[in-house]
């Protein structure tokens, strides 16, 4: 029925082309590679000629390694990797919360203002920095937050601090860099929803005496929930899966879980192990996102709004 209407509006040729492209995009570029990775994660690390040979078998050892470490590990658990794993997820959650606190007021202002040149300028100012590639932006943050960086120089010049603060080691640079990297992904979904909120509702609430915080709590935030959840989901997923920013801005003692995955893929050359790590990260992120969505009573369908 839906398909019939679909072909009616698009015509058979365009209909098949669109359908084919969507299929190609989803199945060939997303589902199949992930399935391949998933399957790979249950195999031992073998040189390519032996893959699928007599020495190949299905195993959980790659997953075991993440939890218990190499065999004969005296600690009993793979403390280093597990710590990185937990820290990555908490840091990503932290970045998400900070981004939300930062972006909600901006998105609200943009969405509720009656348009005009100033707002368009603001949006432009938000977008333009994203013409610069991610690596350069990360390095720019390194310059800002470095020992002799702009921020330290500024603080020392005004004698607010005596010596430079090691923002990099304290991970301030990393959090700032990650937070900044995904700011648009937080602002625009919220902006989109808030823009469609009827201003009369806010005025009606004001007319009934509601203070500003109550208007947000009872009217704006419930209405903006789909945008907020979609923004938070994207920022959390992308922060947890970021590689460039942690690589460049991360302190010397703080690894990001994606860096471990990267190491297994590249330096270690152990694809099954890397795949297992990546799958664990993906599933953990999904569980967290779905759990938080359930906690805040957000439906999957709302995210697409």
């Amino acid at each position: 029925m839906i398909l019939k209407d679909y072909f009616k509006t698009n015509g058979p040729l365009m209909g098949w082309i669109l359908l084919g492209l969507t299929f190609f995009w989803i199945v060939m570029l997303i589902v199949l590679p992930q399935l391949y990775m998933f399957e790979l994660s249950f195999h031992p690390h073998l040189p390519p000629p032996e893959m699928g040979g007599p020495n190949d078998y299905l195993t959980l050892e790659n997953y075991k390694y993440l939890v218990f470490g190499a065999e004969g590990n005296p600690d009993g658990y793979n403390k280093v990797d597990l710590a990185v794993f937990v820290r990555t997820l908490t840091a990503a959650a932290f970045v998400t919360v900070v981004d939300l606190l930062l972006c909600y007021p901006i998105a609200y202002y943009l969405g509720q203002s009656t348009g005009g040149g100033f707002v368009r300028l603001l949006v432009l100012l938000l977008i333009i920095p994203y013409w610069i590639n991610e690596i350069l932006r990360a390095f720019a943050f390194k310059i800002i937050f470095g020992d002799s960086g702009v921020l330290n120089e500024f603080l020392m010049f005004f004698a607010i601090i005596d010596g430079p603060i090691d923002f990099i080691r304290a991970n301030v640079a990393l959090y700032a860099g990650l937070g900044y990297a995904y700011i648009l992904l937080m602002i625009f979904p919220i902006y989109n929803v808030v823009e469609s909120l009827d201003r009369n509702q806010i005025e009606a609430a004001r007319d009934m005496g509601a203070p500003w915080w109550m208007i947000h709590k009872r009217i704006v935030i419930p209405y903006a929930k789909p945008g907020i959840s979609s923004g938070c989901t994207m920022v959390f997923m992308l922060s947890a899966g970021a590689l460039a920013a942690p690589q460049i801005l991360g302190g010397p003692s703080s690894l990001w879980f994606t860096q471990l995955v990267y190491q297994w893929f590249n330096t270690g050359g152990n694809w099954p192990q890397a795949a297992a790590y990546a799958i664990v990260l993906l599933i953990a992120c999904l569980i967290i996102v779905l759990g938080v969505m359930k906690l805040f009573k957000v439906n999957m369908g709302d995210i697409g709004k």
């Binding site: 009827d198 009369n200 509702q201 005025e203 009606a204 609430a205 007319d207 009872r218 009217i219 419930p222 209405y223």
Partner: peptide, 11 residues
Amino acid sequence: LIFQNLALFPL
């Protein structure tokens, strides 16, 4: 005030 579009809170 009763608004032209009523402005009931939908949620």
